[in-house]
Computed example of a mutant assay.
Amino acid sequence: MTAKHSVLFVCLGNICRSTMAEGVFEHLVKERGLQDQWVIDSAGTGDWHVGYPPDERTMKVLKKHGIHGYKHKGRLITQADFTTFEYIFGMDHENISDITELAPANSTAKVALLGEFDPQKELIIEDPYFTVSRNKNAFNEVYDQCLRCCAAFLDTVSGK
């Protein structure tokens, strides 16, 4: 069976929020036995971390929650992503603005904030890279929000 759906998670540097969401979503899809129905990836709008693995704090939180074996190398969002992926999710309004600016005229992707699926109505997924200095629990909070949003999104697409 070929993939039926595709999703790209996007944040600023592609090492914290978007990779957290990608790892969480991959895990949920595997738990539900739907991995053959999805193409899942993440990207950034800035090039600082291209080629680098996710932030070690992201990986630590994923592992703490039983998500092992997740691998990714940072990359930039490309114009091809707008026709390759059915859904492109940004984490905050700046991401959405950057994504919208990059979108070619032939874009077929649905662009939205991942937080639109948050049952707790937290629309913005704050960047833990910059907030961890004042909130030591920032990466765990991003995980919790990504889990809520990704599960709700998957339920919506799956018709649950």
Rank of each mutant, 00 (worst) to 15 (best):
G74I: 06
E94Q: 15
I77F: 11
G115T: 04
C146S: 04
A112G: 08
N14F: 08
H68P: 01
G44K: 11
Q120F: 13
A21E: 07
D155G: 04
P104V: 00
F139W: 06
T58E: 00
P53S: 15
I99M: 10
L154S: 13
L102E: 08
G115P: 01
T100F: 06
M59P: 00
Q35D: 11
R75Q: 04
M91H: 09
V157I: 13
K64G: 02
C149V: 06
T58S: 02
L102A: 11
E31I: 07
M91G: 03
L76G: 11
K60W: 10
E26L: 04
N137H: 15
Q145M: 13
I96N: 07
L114S: 05
P53V: 14
H72V: 12
K160C: 09
S42Y: 02
T131L: 05
V157F: 11
R148G: 03
E126I: 12
C149S: 04
T58C: 02
F117Q: 01
G90Q: 05
M1E: 13
R17I: 03
F130C: 04
Y70K: 02
G46A: 13
E31P: 13
T2G: 13
E56T: 15
N95C: 05
L8M: 14
I88D: 08
Y70H: 06
G115W: 08
K64S: 03
G51A: 03
T84Q: 07
A105H: 14
I96R: 10
L34N: 00
E31Q: 14
G66V: 04
K60T: 12
V24F: 01
T19D: 02
T2R: 13
D92S: 08
V39H: 00
Y52D: 10
V157Q: 14
C150R: 14
C146Y: 07
E116V: 09
K136S: 15
S133H: 15
H49Y: 09
Q145R: 12
K136M: 11
E101Q: 13
R17K: 12
R57G: 06
F82Y: 15
H72L: 04
F89L: 07
K121H: 11
R148T: 07
N106D: 08
H65T: 01
I40S: 06
G69N: 03
N14A: 06
K110D: 04
H27G: 05
K4G: 06
D144Q: 12
K136H: 15
K30H: 13
V10Y: 03
V7H: 09
K73F: 12
V7R: 14
K160V: 04
H49S: 06
A3D: 07
T45W: 15
E141M: 02
T19I: 09
L154W: 07
G159S: 03
H49F: 10
V10C: 00
F25M: 10
T84L: 06
T84E: 07
C11K: 09
D41A: 02
D98C: 12
C11W: 15
E101A: 15
A43R: 15
G46H: 14
V7C: 12
H93I: 08
I15M: 01
F9W: 15
Q120I: 11
V50P: 02
H27S: 12
G44L: 09
V24D: 00
K160H: 04
